[in-house]
Amino acid sequence: MIPLSHYLIVSGILFSIGLAGLLLRRNLLLVLLSVEIMLNAANLNFIAGSAAHSDTGGQVIAFFVMVVAAAEVTIGLAIAVLLFRKQSSVDTRDISFLKG
């Protein structure tokens, strides 16, 4: 039986990897991937909690997260495609329309 803390540590490592990727990668696709990794870190947390407390609620939430992640990545990829059409680049440094 693997203790809960191990799951939480792996989840934390995954979340940190995802966060670092989100903040540091310059390619929009990889940024989206990083977001997915962070979501899956959260999922891992839910599943581990569910198993440890014998409560199926965590698994239900995990399914919801997957559905939302699928929707999110659809929109995110669509934005990436449009951006590429617009300025032939998916570099995050080129996305500066919000500059004040």
Partner: peptide, 13 residues
């Protein structure tokens, strides 16, 4: 306040 609005999305993150 304007200087915070760099336009770089990762800065916002």
């Amino acid at each position: 306040l304007r200087s915070f609005q760099t336009g770089v999305v990762q800065f916002y993150a």
